[in-house]
Design a protein around this nucleic acid. Sequence first.
DNA 1: CTAGGGTTAG
Length: 687
Amino acid sequence: MFLKDGIKCHAQFLKSGLVPPIFTSNQLIHLYANHCLIHEAQKLFDEMPERNVVSWNVIISAYVKSNHLPQAKALFDSASVRDLVTYNTILSGYANADGYQSCAIELFLGMQRKRGEMGIDEVTLTTMVNLFAKLCSLTGGRQLHSYMIKTGNDRSGFAVSSLIDMYSKCGCFGDACLVFKGCEGPVDLVSKNAIVAACCKVGEVDLALRLFWRANESNDTVSWNTMISGLVQNSYEEKALELFIRMWKNRVKFNEHTFASILGACCGLRNLKLGKEVHAWILKNDLISNAFINSGIVDLYCKCGNMKYAESACSISGFENPFSITSMIVGCSMQGNMIQARRLFNSLAEKNHVVWTALFSGYVKSQQSEVVFDLLKEFREKEATTADVLILVSVLNACASQSALNPGKQIHGYLFRMGFQMDEKMTSALIDMYSKCGSVAYAENIFRRAVKRDSVTYNVMIACYAHHGQDVHAMHLFREMLEKGVRPDSVTLIALLSACRHAGFLDMGEKLFYSMKEGYNISPEIEHYGCMVDLYGRAMQLEKAVELFKQIPESQQDVVLLGAFLNACRLNRNVELAREVEERILKTERDKGARFVQLANAYAAEGNWDEMGRIRKLMKGNEAKKFAGCSWLYLDHRVHIFTSGDTSHFQAKTIYSILASLTGELCHIGRGPCVEDNSHGILLDKT
DNA sequence: CTAGGGTTAG
């Protein structure tokens, strides 16, 4: 029934003075609810002289759909009649509303206990599977699955698609596939869409595409949206746009989900021109005030560096849309404009965890560690709830990047006192923090005690060993990783190869590098090549370094790789080649100042003062600017910052006299101090 | 007899 017809029908009853029969009133209430006319629905419900169980069900459902859980709950509690549908309606309300999840579980347990009276059915079970998916509770999900198999409630499209989604969200792609493969008869479209989404989530794009095109004539809007969004998520933006054009040519209806993905594609490509076209299209389709779309547009303009447009898009949706403001905060952070980010943050009436996290990571990225800790204090004061795990992870990252051991330990202690469930993310962040702060033993301790370890956990621990010169330990851990069946990824290999290059393990490095593709299905990227070039250079095998270097297309060669190659040339005393590479480095536009300094320092370290002087002259001619590198210490709850020759510290005199005596000791041992030593990771390059 | 509850895409 259309709304128009419903209103006409309702009006006729009112005119004639007759009361509509229960059946009609129920239908009308349902109709009003579907059109978000909750007041009309309630009014009609109040005026009913007689109600049956369906009347209660439709009015409760109306409040559930409009996210008015307290009202829905009150109606449920006062309902004069209830059946299984009533229970399922309020159960789904609890399951989908934030903060009501424990009510859902409690209600479900009650329904199970009172099996004789009301019982549970397939709808109850799929609702609960959905809830466990949202909570990422694999244990609960598995229990429900086996119960569903036992009671024969695992067959319908609803059941299958929910189960696929649950396994996918819980990180069990294999189980999701098993559920999908176990289906008999014709493939259910929603289940197919769910498995396509699951494939994309784990990066199995080819498989997703194959499934998508199989029986593609029945694909609906959701199928196309799922595939397009999956391609965007896996950085196949062009393919996503191609697919969108095909969708259009096939006359498949598209909607706001489609636009959100297309915006994501433009954003990933940093394609402002195309993004503007999509923006215009969105305006034409009157979707600009949609919260997701609007924040997508804001995100697009931020990522393309056009803050003016971003701001105007954000203000169009009014300062009501927290999604857009969060995108703006992220955008300002990327520009290093933390003042504006903070202003936007303050403008929000309610701060959710996402926006807190955005602000935290902004300060982390702009390396304002003091502010990060102040903000943590503020967060704990204002938010009565325990600190969000993600926020603590980002604070730990701040500690790691600042080598701030004491605050890191404080966070660790806080986690311990609060009895936080340590997940892989938190474990990895802690290991990384201790590693970067120089405490290998602590890092090791946490790694050994961890209940769950994923590839990231292994990666940070291997990298820790590699950075601290414990190359044999790094290799051992890699073997353990393989034995435990944890799949190594591209980062694992970077850590291992850098361990090899620090230790000069030529054979092992070669073996690893050339077995990457076949052994672990990882294609070597620029970083891996960089490690190998460096390894060959240090092993005085320039030919091999050259050979490898030439395999990389010029367009992909970055300064890090060029720097490694230059180093290899110089170590092998190939002046001609070195000069060639040097020119290429100086041609790189980005961070020009930093490149000059890098070169000058390299020559200075060699004691090649003529070359260094030459580079310094070039610097002047190019008017290269570089902020002074600085070192700092975290001591007595504050950060002490030093630059070269700096006398601004209040205890500068004492510091310099101690430094002089230390330098004297070093000279005494027989090794002169380095001119400008950047190798300890305490140098902050603020170029 | 016909109504009401559960699935996938941002």
